[in-house]
Design a protein around this nucleic acid. Structure first.
Length: 650
RNA sequence: GCCGACGUAGCUCAGUGGUAGAGCAACGGUUUCGUAAACCGUAGGUCGCGGGUUCGAAUCCCAUCGUCGGCUCCA
């Protein structure tokens, strides 16, 4: 073999290249670049793929050395920390078997089968302590190709590692690898079936924390073994960990269930049943205000409002197919005069009934029916969550019936509406085009047509979107929109679906220009989703401090002492006349006390009135957050300011 | 539904086998105050519900309901 053949050219991120003898690793490359890089190196990207630092390089590879500075390296860190955790658990709990331990957003988890022991929060501290020992031991993580799969399977089975055995069996033809964890004498102290990649050694792990334990199922299948899962997080720097924990705290501070108690927003009752929400006056005010806005916006866009019954004969859901395909989420039948009736789980069949109540001409289309329609769906008890996951909720549901030619502009119009609504509430968003899933109804042509129109609408609005391949529902391609709230969390947002099923089942049609019947296109769409989820999300988005246009109480009028009551009443009277929601607090508490209470209730404006204001015929304005808005002014000026703020919805 | 934790006054929580407690809120009184908690007093709980162990249970056990953290898709 000539020397030339063993030489390899490696391309670096800046486009420059280096030449090596074969048998060099990414670590060697780092060393050749600089000592500093060599010391900081934790892994590498080879041709865009994240790999171990000790991966052998091949001719023509594009290589980037990863350090803690690179965001991708967090994946390495977390995955390796997962192995450290698994090793710690097996050290502490004899007989514990390991399942899988992937990285997830902001952390990782590992699933275990620990016969005879239930993990508790106290155990987490023990496991953390054991993990620190493993870090201190600075074990090396070494990739090891399994030479003899059957022998390894045998080993796993002897050790009782049946989950690993199952995985290996499945991957036997994918060049399966183990990661060996070796002590300083290169003795293998632990191993795990793993695709990698990993950090070179455990000593690099600095900041981690185990967060919670939970149940899970092997392979996510509830018919299989129940496992115990530990969730944890890991970061390169203690400061990053600290910041992450702060973020979790912030999320907890914003929790809508917690804020509900503080601000008197909603309740659920054992006597009534879980997942059924009672809206207290404060939150009902917010909702009613949103609904008024919603109606206004829809009216302006040519929607017509409808109302449909909350129960219907089973026949309806037989025709729609809900009974067959959605039956397990529907409440059981009630007997009405010998016929089975059901609570409505969806509004679409009802809207179709209205559409079909007369013959429709192409001249009538598009028809846009909108309803704040309350539906009831069975959700398993374990998944219920405050207002965000409930059993009875009101959807801002609409169904558009149109011709194929109108489809694209209907979707464009919807995207425009979404933009208006989301900007109003201060959410940023991102669109996903969900395409045909594996199991589907309808023809390929129909799917292609509908998906094409959805995509064309996204393009014509210049919207950034991602394709979610196979993410459509079995009867419809759709656009899902995800929202990002004030602290960057993602929420399920608006959605639009082109139904390829119901128009056929119900024979939804119109008379075309040609005098013939044509099947109508039916679009489902929701902007807010459900009032329950949306309002629950808004509480967290605003951390309970609703903007003035939504605030349950917009102004608190606070007279300093009894002799100012009369003046304060006249102020409140004028606020009322102006259509504002105000409260006069005449209690004999100190002014500080009443200000504090108004602050804690997140009332946007406080008007303090005392001798000075009575004399000058003004009000002393205090804003709940903005010190700069603190000043005295005439009531008319304040009303103007308030009016502008409400109209602008800021 | 499953795994785990939890359930004490309106709220937040203390009390782990021996007479149910605190702070805030509520109520009564005093205070009339200038931008985030005045003072004094009163009342409030079959300790989620049901069973069991015990001389004795908020406390230990069982069952049940609910809540919370997760487990699968989703409004």
């Amino acid at each position: 073999m000539s020397k030339v053949e063993t030489e390899q050219k490696i391309i670096l991120p800046d486009g420059s290249s280096r030449t090596f003898e074969s048998g060099e690793t990414a670590s060697d490359l780092a060393k050749s670049i600089s000592q500093g890089l060599f010391r900081k190196a934790v892994g590498c990207l080879i041709n865009g793929e994240i790999r171990d630092l000790y991966t052998l390089l091949s001719d023509g590879d594009q290589v980037k050395i990863l350090t803690a500075e690179d965001s991708q390296s967090l994946e390495l860190l977390r995955h390796s920390t997962a192995h450290i955790m698994a090793q710690a658990v097996q050290r502490l709990f004899l007989g514990a078997k390991i399942a899988i331990g992937p990285t997830i957003e902001d952390g990782f988890y590992y699933d275990f089968d620990i016969p005879g022991h239930s993990l508790s929060l106290e155990d987490l501290a023990l496991i953390e302590a054991e993990m620190k020992k493993i870090v201190a031991e600075n074990q090396r993580l070494v990739r090891y190709s399994i030479p003899d799969v059957d022998r390894q399977l045998d080993d796993f089975r002897k050790q009782g590692e049946k989950f690993k055995a199952e995985l290996l069996e499945e991957h036997r033809n994918d060049n399966p690898t183990l990661y060996l964890m070796q002590d300083k004498d290169s003795k293998v102290v632990w191993n795990d079936l793993c695709r990698g990649p990993h950090l070179p050694a455990t000593g690099l792990v600095k900041a981690f924390k185990l967060l919670k334990v939970s149940g899970s199922y092997w392979r996510g299948d509830e018919k299989r073994e129940q496992l115990q899962r530990i969730y944890a997080t890991a970061w390169w720097k203690a400061d990053d960990l600290e910041a992450y924990l702060k973020r979790l705290e912030e999320a907890e501070r914003r929790d809508h269930r917690r804020l509900s108690k503080q601000l008197d927003l909603f309740s659920v009752h054992e006597e009534v049943g879980p997942g059924l929400i009672f809206w207290h006056p404060n939150l009902a005010t917010v909702r009613a205000t949103i609904e008024d806005f919603w109606r206004d916006v829809h009216r302006k866009r040519g929607y017509q409002f409808v109302f449909t019954p909350h129960i219907a004969s089973e026949q309806l859901y037989e025709i729609s197919g809900h009974l067959q395909s959605y039956g397990e989420n529907m409440y059981s039948a009630m007997d009405i005069d010998g016929a089975p009736y059901r609570c409505k789980p969806m509004n679409c069949p009802g809207h179709i009934m209205i559409y079909k109540s007369k013959l429709r001409s192409y001249r009538d289309l598009p028809v846009r029916f909108a309803e704040l329609g309350t539906v009831y769906r069975y959700e398993r008890s374990g998944v219920l969550h405050g207002m965000l996951r409930v059993r009875g909720f009101t959807q801002d549901d609409s169904h558009i019936f149109c011709t194929p030619e109108q489809l694209e502009s209907e979707i464009t119009g919807f995207l425009d509406l979404v933009d208006l609504m989301m900007r109003t509430f201060g959410y940023t968003y991102k669109a996903y085009l969900a395409t045909r899933p594996e199991k589907y109804l309808g023809s390929d042509e129909e799917w292609e047509f509908a998906t094409g129109k959805l995509e064309a609408a996204l393009k014509s609005r210049n919207l950034d979107y991602e394709i979610d391949p196979g993410g459509g529902v079995f009867y419809a391609p759709k656009i899902d929109i995800k929202l990002f709230d004030a602290i960057g969390r993602e929420w399920q947002g608006p959605t639009v679906q082109v139904d390829l099923n119901l128009p056929k089942r119900f024979d939804v049609n119109y008379i075309g220009e040609d005098g013939q019947r044509h099947q109508a296109i039916m679009v489902h769409r929701a902007v807010l989703g459900s009032m329950e989820r949306f309002c629950g999300g808004l509480i967290e988005h605003y951390a309970g401090a609703f903007p003035t246009w939504l605030a349950p109480t917009q102004v608190a009028v606070l007279p300093i002492s009894d002799r100012h009551h009369e003046y304060a009443r006249s102020i409140q009277e004028k606020l009322k006349e102006g259509g504002f929601r105000s409260r006069l607090d005449e209690r004999a508490e100190t002014i500080n006390y009443r200000i504090r209470e108004a602050q804690m209730e997140q009332i946007p404006y406080m008007l303090v009135v005392g001798d000075r204001e009575v004399a000058s015929n003004e009000v002393a304005v205090r804003h709940r957050r903005d010190e700069s808005k603190k000043k005295e002014m005439g009531l008319e000026s304040f009303l103007a300011l308030l009016c502008a703020e409400v109209n602008e919805k800021t």
